[in-house]
Every structure is written in structure tokens, then in C-alpha cells.
Design a protein around this nucleic acid. Structure first.
Length: 394
DNA sequence: GCGATCAGGT
DNA sequence: CACACCTGATCGC
């Protein structure tokens, strides 16, 4: 769960993934992805009022995030204030103080984050140096070296600070099986079941959040079927996802939801109410995508675990493991690392669960570096940043 | 009547 | 295990 307060030390006039408190005064807003814990304050009446009187305040995000956000009518008032940016296209953004007219120029680049549809990291380059806000991410080992815009010529850019998704930045989560490994295992389990008869049905017990869509598209392709979901509205302009989901209950793979959905499966019923087409009871298994992890030296065991007569947990992670994060940081060699998720252990130690005292000073809530730098893997001499080609925003 | 927050659930 | 929600109760305006 993100506990990032919204602002980076280097560029305090922009707010990212937080829209309440001090962030109400920001000159520009950035949304890394459409998960609720990164949208705090985004539908607040104070912010809504600010937009009414502002010509310059915008919300920057990916096209997919814009689409997902506006599919919820509660965020419709943002419509004329959203600027969707292309991925991997450095864009010049001018932050303007509407009172004084003061201007500040930044080059912002969206980098794919692999967390959920539309999720991005923000690379920000300006007078206070180059910083990377990762949002939430799942990148595999070696992925940082494949992101062109983290490089300048053949070298990694000099990165002053990384604002890091530190969800699994703990050796306890040393390894999480790769996305491909997890997908392969889930495919196998589904194959085993649905091939038995047309009454053999799989319920994917997914949380109410974006991020499972690649599972749907992959299983849809593999089994030449569509996945039953509650609504298609949010995917209207995403043909790749839309073609793999349906609201027609007559399919062997479901990812629909109901408030008491866990009780349905043992009773041969699905959350959508489907029981059988001709009175024959359905044979249902549930597969619950869950994070599974393994220590540095623990031998990896099963990626699928049977949890009951007809229920399974399958490995699935939205976030990078400890070793994936270490690889990422070792490659980028930032000077500072700011965790955006405070481990529960540290929260207790710092006693932040007691009543918070919120000082009035404008920068009282700025993040502090909490974790030591990783050991360098690649010795690197400092190099100045070279100018970046600017791509026009379409 | 509204939002914010918390407890408890999956 | 933790995640990203959800519902319902309570509080303050």
C-alpha cells in the first residue's frame, strides 16, 4: 500500500499519486496507474473547485490510465484537465504558478511499469537533476537495461533519486516466480479441468482491481474462449482486452464477482448466478491469484497450491521481488532511494500508528531516505546528461 | 446527506 | 504471508 505523500524533494511543485493535503497546491498532477491507493484525494471537492478556476493545472497519465479513470463517472470532472502522454516520448512540461507567473520547465517521460494496464513510471529531467518515480512496478531481471530512455548514448543516465515501489524490498521476498512461469502453471491447471467436460468450469477469484487482464487475454487465446466478467465498459477503447472478455455467462472461464462469492463455488454456483444451462450441475474449481515468494536459498516449490476440495491458489504478483528490485537499483545506481511503501515493521518502530501530528510547514511531509544503497555491480564514472530529443505530444 | 476513517472481510 | 479492494459502522460537518 503506497504511503508516498505525493511530492519529490527535487520537484515539489508537482504531485504524483496523491491529491490531498499539500498536494492541493501543486502546479501539475501525475497518476502512475488506476489503483485506488494511488488516487487519494483525486475526487475531493477542494481539488474539483481548484480545477474550475484554473486554466493551467493538468493531470498527466498514460492513455490507458485516462480511459480507465474516466470510465468511472466520479472522475468525469477531470475530463478537460487530463493530458495523456505517449509511452517513451520525452515531453516538455511547463509548471506555471498562476499567482506569480513563475515558470519551471521539466522533461517528463512515461516508462511502462508492468504493474497493471496503463501503469507507468515517471522519469523527470529538469534543473534539479534526473529523478525516477516508479509508481508500482513489476519488472524482471535485466529489464532496466532494455529501457532506452534510461540511457544517454550507451550509458545509464545519472539518476539523482529513485522514488521506489518498495513493497517487496525485503530479503524475505527474495524470489517470486516469473510471470511466464506463473501463467504456464495456471494454463496447465485450467487445461486439466476444462478439458473434462463442458460442465467443468473455472472461477478466477481475482480482486476488484486492474492487473489481471493479461491473465484473461492469455487464457482466452489458449482456450479459444472469452472470460466472463462483470462489466466491459472500462475496456471500450482497448480492443486487445475487450476481445477476450464477455458478459455472456455461457463460458467455462469466469472472473465475475459477487459480495459473497466465496460461498458460491462449493454450492456448484458461480458469482454471476450461473449454475447450469440444462440443469446439470457445474463442476467448479476456484483459482485465487496470490503472491507467493521464496527466500534466497529456499528451493522453489509449487507455484499452484491446493487449498480445498475444489480451490487453488496460484502464484501471481503485481510487484517486483527483492532480487528484481536489487537488480533494478544496481543497474541505475541512483544517489538517493526513497521507499514509497513503508514496511509494517518500520511503521511500528516509528510509532506512526499513533495519532499523527501534522505540522503546518509546507515541506514537513517530504520523504526521507530510509534504505541504504545497494552494492554497485557495474563500476560507473559520472557522466553529464546529454540533451534529450523532444518528441511532440500528439 | 456527505465524506473521511476505521474495523473486519476476502 | 500481502495485496487492493469491499462493506458496514461511526464520526464530524
Amino acid at each position: 500500500m503506497s504511503s508516498f505523500a505525493g511530492r519529490m524533494k527535487e520537484y515539489p511543485n508537482m504531485s504524483l499519486d496523491r491529491f490531498d493535503r499539500e498536494n492541493l497546491h501543486a502546479r501539475a498532477y501525475f497518476l502512475s496507474h488506476c489503483h485506488k491507493d494511488h488516487m487519494k484525494g483525486l475526487k475531493g471537492p477542494l481539488l474539483k473547485r481548484k480545477l474550475k478556476f484554473s486554466l493551467t493545472v493538468k493531470l498527466y497519465c498514460s492513455f490507458v490510465t485516462k480511459e480507465l479513470l474516466l470510465s468511472n463517472p466520479k472522475y468525469a470532472f477531470w475530463e478537460d484537465h487530463i493530458v495523456a502522454l505517449e509511452l517513451e516520448s520525452p515531453t516538455l512540461i511547463t509548471l506555471i504558478d498562476e499567482a506569480s507567473g513563475e515558470r519551471e520547465e521539466l522533461v517528463v517521460t512515461l516508462l511502462p511499469a508492468g504493474h497493471c494496464p496503463g501503469s507507468v513510471m515517471f522519469l523527470v529531467e529538469g534543473a534539479q537533476g534526473t529523478v525516477l518515480y516508479t509508481g508500482d512496478f513489476r519488472l524482471a531481471k535485466g529489464d532496466a537495461s532494455r529501457i532506452e530512455l534510461l540511457h544517454s548514448g550507451s550509458r545509464v543516465k545519472d539518476i539523482k533519486s529513485v522514488y521506489l515501489d518498495s513493497t517487496f524490498y525485503d530479503p524475505r521476498f527474495y524470489q517470486i516466480p516469473s510471470r511466464e512461469t506463473c501463467l504456464h502453471a495456471i494454463r496447465g491447471l485450467v487445461q486439466d479441468w476444462v478439458s473434462r467436460s463442458v460442465y467443468h468450469t473455472v472461477w478466477l477469484n481475482c480482486k476488484a482491481a486492474y492487473g489481471y487482464e493479461y491473465l484473461f487475454t492469455n487464457l482466452g487465446d489458449e482456450f479459444h474462449t472469452q472470460i466472463h466478467v462483470k462489466s466491459l465498459d472500462m475496456f471500450k477503447k482497448m480492443p486487445e482486452i475487450l476481445s477476450h472478455v464477455t458478459t455472456d455467462r455461457a463460458t467455462q472461464i469466469h472472473a465475475c464477482r459477487h459480495p459473497k462469492d466465496e460461498e458460491f463455488v462449493p454450492a456448484s454456483r458461480l458469482p454471476c448466478g450461473s449454475s447450469a444451462s440444462d440443469g446439470t450441475p457445474l463442476n467448479i474449481i476456484s483459482i485465487k491469484p496470490s503472491t507467493m515468494w521464496f527466500g534466497e536459498r529456499t528451493q522453489r516449490t509449487k507455484v499452484i497450491v491446493r487449498t480445498g476440495a475444489s480451490s487453488y491458489r496460484a502464484c501471481f504478483s503485481f510487484h517486483s521481488s527483492y532480487s528484481e528490485i536489487k537488480d533494478f537499483l544496481s543497474y541505475l545506481q541512483p544517489i538517493n532511494i526513497y521507499p514509497s511503501v513503508i514496511p509494517i515493521v518500520i511503521l511500528y518502530t516509528l510509532n506512526v500508528f499513533s495519532t499523527p501530528q501534522l505540522p503546518n510547514t509546507p515541506f514537513a511531509n517530504m520523504p526521507q531516505p530510509l534504505i541504504p544503497l545497494p552494492q554497485p555491480l557495474i563500476p560507473q564514472s559520472p557522466t553529464p546528461n546529454t540533451p534529450i530529443p523532444l518528441c511532440p505530444n500528439p
